[in-house]
Computed example of a mutant assay.
Amino acid sequence: MARRYSDIKRGAKLQQAFTNLQAYEAAAATRPSKIGTRGARGLNKTVYIAPFTTHIDADEIVQARVKPEAFTIISPAILGGTTKADIAETLGAKSLVTFPSFRASRIVFFQNASRIATVARSERTNMEYLKYTGNTYSCPFGATVDADDEMEAFLDIKAALLTTFANSEVKRVSLSREFVGVGR
């Protein structure tokens, strides 16, 4: 019987959060800007891959970008041990091909070695939530040969990633699929 009224009780709590959010948005003009308080972002590293969904010749390659710290973590240790995914640091003898609105396949993972979560309070709604201390990394990857499958390559990288990091240090691993847009 108590479950029937849980949405009503939750609605009252969320109504207060909605009121707090409206007050936060109304006071937007009075808050100081946070632009420039964290410093400049680091430069991205240019890498080269072979796409999964679009055919290119054997002497062609596509450019992608990755943050250097993500590349350092995933590329030598994990991508070096897979047989279905590849990433190159140099263009070599291959020629660069560009596609409109191309986004490479990416493996995204959350690393949290300390397993610490703290209770934080939202400045917008004043509701409590769990805040995990950890880092999210994302690295593009491409095919080794033309017949490679994107999902098989992802599962191969995921297995290598989970065996490389012990003690459940990696919490979430996901795939951001490759996308090739239509020209404008």
Rank of each mutant, 00 (worst) to 15 (best):
R3I: 09
R3A: 11
S6V: 11
S6P: 00
S6M: 10
K9L: 09
L14K: 09
L14I: 10
Q15C: 11
Q15P: 04
A17G: 06
T19Q: 13
N20S: 10
L21P: 03
A23P: 04
E25D: 13
E25K: 12
A28H: 09
A28G: 04
A28T: 08
T30M: 10
S33N: 06
S33K: 06
K34V: 07
K34D: 07
K34H: 08
K34Q: 07
I35T: 12
G36I: 04
T37P: 02
T37W: 06
G39Y: 06
G39W: 06
R41S: 13
N44M: 12
V47G: 00
Y48P: 00
P51T: 02
H55C: 06
D57I: 03
I61A: 02
V62S: 02
Q63Y: 04
A64E: 02
R65N: 14
R65V: 10
R65T: 12
P68W: 04
E69N: 15
E69V: 12
E69R: 13
A70P: 01
I73G: 01
I74A: 09
S75F: 05
S75P: 00
P76Y: 06
P76F: 05
A77H: 12
I78A: 02
I78F: 01
L79P: 00
G80Y: 04
G81W: 02
T82R: 03
T83Y: 09
L91Y: 04
K94W: 00
S95D: 06
L96F: 03
V97Y: 02
T98G: 10
F99C: 05
F99I: 05
P100E: 10
I107Y: 02
V108L: 09
F110A: 08
N112L: 08
S114P: 09
V119Y: 13
A120S: 15
R121T: 15
R121S: 15
S122F: 06
S122D: 10
M127K: 13
E128A: 15
Y132C: 14
Y132A: 14
T133C: 12
N135M: 14
T136Y: 07
P140S: 02
V145Y: 01
D148I: 02
M151E: 08
M151L: 09
M151W: 02
E152Q: 07
A153T: 03
F154C: 00
F154S: 00
L155Y: 05
D156C: 02
K158H: 03
T164A: 08
T164R: 08
N167F: 14
V170K: 03
V170I: 13
S174V: 07
F179N: 12
F179G: 08
G181P: 06
G181T: 09
